[in-house]
Amino acid sequence: MQTTVREKQNSIACPRCGSEMVLRRSKKGGDQSSQFWGCSRYPRCRGTANIA
């Protein structure tokens, strides 16, 4: 049996709940396909952060 270890891609914490943030792409708005950090607990938490 092989165990898969998921590496953390970042060390950014959600500003709303403290969970891990994941890199996402915008699908709507003026900046379509731009990237941003979104909470891994979405849709329960809608915390976001801009990429600096």
Score class of each variant (00 low, 15 high):
F36K: 13
N10M: 13
R46V: 07
S26W: 06
N10P: 05
S40Y: 11
M1R: 15
A49C: 09
C17M: 04
G18F: 08
Q32T: 10
N50W: 02
Q35H: 10
C39V: 13
A49Y: 05
R41D: 09
I51T: 07
Q35F: 01
V5R: 09
G18M: 10
G30W: 01
S40C: 14
F36Q: 11
G29L: 11
V5F: 15
C39W: 04
T48K: 10
S26R: 00
S26I: 00
K28S: 00
C45Q: 13
K27Y: 05
E7M: 08
S19T: 10
N50E: 15
T48D: 01
K28W: 01
M21I: 01
Q35A: 03
L23C: 08
R25K: 15
P43S: 15
S26M: 10
Q32R: 10
P43W: 14
G29V: 01
Q2S: 15
M21F: 02
R6Q: 05
K8V: 07
Y42T: 06
R46A: 00
P43R: 13
S19H: 14
C39E: 12
W37L: 00
R44Q: 09
G29N: 05
P15V: 09
K27L: 10
L23Y: 01
V5Q: 14
R24E: 06
E20F: 06
N10V: 14
A49W: 01
C39N: 06
Q35R: 00
V22L: 11
P43H: 10
S40Q: 15
W37T: 02
M21Y: 08
A49R: 07
K8L: 06
D31H: 05
W37M: 04
T48L: 11
I12V: 05
R16T: 05
G30K: 07
C39G: 04
A13F: 05
R46F: 03
Q32D: 04
Q9E: 12
G30C: 06
A52E: 02
I51F: 07
S26C: 08
G30E: 12
I12A: 09
Q32E: 15
G18R: 09
Q9Y: 05
N10G: 15
R6K: 14
S34Y: 04
G18L: 12
N50C: 00
F36I: 09
Q32G: 04
G18P: 10
I12Q: 03
Q9S: 13
K27P: 02
Q32W: 00
